[in-house]
Write a protein that binds this DNA or RNA. Structure first.
Lengths: 216, 216
DNA sequence: CTAATTTCTGAACATGCATTCAGAAATCAG
DNA sequence: CTGATTTCTGAATGCATGTTCAGAAATTAG
């Protein structure tokens, strides 16, 4: 008899099961990054993994489920590499700078993962209703930036501006990087990060009081 | 006998031909904006236009050709409503501000057109090789911003920064608006434009010399 | 070793799509 | 009015894809 689709509350996911799932997710990431979301068929992913398409459907409830898990995987690893660095900052300006730098560093370290995610998200957004990835997966980043910006405004480090617009602008600036990097792998991401840090530092910081600028 | 596909150098495009083409393009814009690019089948577009799918293929060489013409149409009307305003500015800061304001105003006036274009471009970018729209159609905007930024740097109005990164950031900030507007039609675009103008003015402008800031 | 269970295969199926095309309908020319 | 041309139809075609499934192969349990 055939076993039912695995769900998370199953007693023991066997070793081979977790290994296969991870392998399939990795291959999905590569194919989606290299061929684009539209060309990333189950057949292509299966071929990359060296299995038949049936195996994918044996471990995942369907293509949408696989895509969802790819999203969770990438965002989870991203958060774990970025959030700790941000949380140990003592002021909002440093936190903003660190968040941007760490985000670019994560892109540099995982170009395929982030490109795959961007392809998925873009396809979802250009697709009308059928969102591929749950907002709770990618919204923490927006919330993180929002908290930092509100923090800085509260403390007077930042000027008054629309936090929503600023968050959107920052996130879009970061999300544009993966495809640029794919188009030109020699792109200097360190320099790119420095530019963004400077750009958004100037865009956010409060005007220095005039009296402090007086010379002598 | 069947007539061949029309090409631009044909002697006389009949009245009904240009009318049908325009009508089909308009319907394609609406369907792509409302349903998303992936769901925008020829059948849907034909249904919206009240014709059979064959008509679309009679006036356009294929779906790709239709999409391309949608892109040309939207970008052409956009340029004609933005460029004249920008060109009459006398300094780079004003030109940058005007470009951003006019871009947002065009979005406000043509929400479906710009959303459709964004859906097409996003689908193309998330798609790997198969770009839907020719770069010569959408690159003039980047070039326009680049020229303004280089102008401002040359004149000393702007500080030193990477023009490429700044252009990318500005364009992405603008391109994020249509989908936000679609998600929340009550979005205040005037306020949004003001925020972006202030943001990028601060991000680009040269540091005011200290002596000019001295009070009295 | 044998039987049960897990894992995997590959063909079959269903669906949606762009495109083709033979010919109908409408329009135009003379 | 009549024949030629333009415009349009809708069924047929071919293709790609996600999904199902009966059973083979491999692994594990006893």
């Amino acid at each position: 008899m055939h076993s039912e689709i695995r769900s998370a509350n199953q007693p023991k996911p066997s070793f081979i099961e977790t290994a296969r799932r991870a392998q399939i997710i990795d291959c999905a990431v590569e194919v989606i990054a290299e061929l684009g979301f539209a060309q990333a068929s189950l057949a292509q992913i299966a071929k990359r993994a060296g299995v038949s398409t049936g195996v994918i459907l044996y471990y995942f409830a369907g293509k949408d489920d696989l895509i969802r898990e790819v999203g969770v995987h990438v965002f989870t690893t991203g958060r774990s590499s970025i959030e700790p660095l941000v949380q140990q900052q003592l002021d909002a300006r440093s936190a903003l700078r660190t968040f941007i730098e760490a985000s670019v560093a994560y892109i540099a370290a995982n170009p395929k993962k982030v490109l795959a995610i961007m392809n998925i998200l873009r396809a979802g957004r250009s697709d009308g209703g059928t969102l591929k990835i749950d907002p709770t997966v990618y919204q923490p980043r927006q919330i993180g930036f929002r908290n930092i910006l509100e923090w800085g405004q509260r403390d007077g480090e930042f000027r008054t501006f629309s936090v929503a617009v600023m968050v959107e602008t920052i996130v879009e600036a970061l999300d544009a990087i993966p495809s640029q990097l794919a188009a030109d792998p020699s792109l200097d991401l360190d320099a790119y990060a420095k530019e963004l840090v400077e750009l958004f530092d100037r865009a956010t910081r409060a005007d220095t009081p005039v009296q402090e600028l007086r010379v002598r």
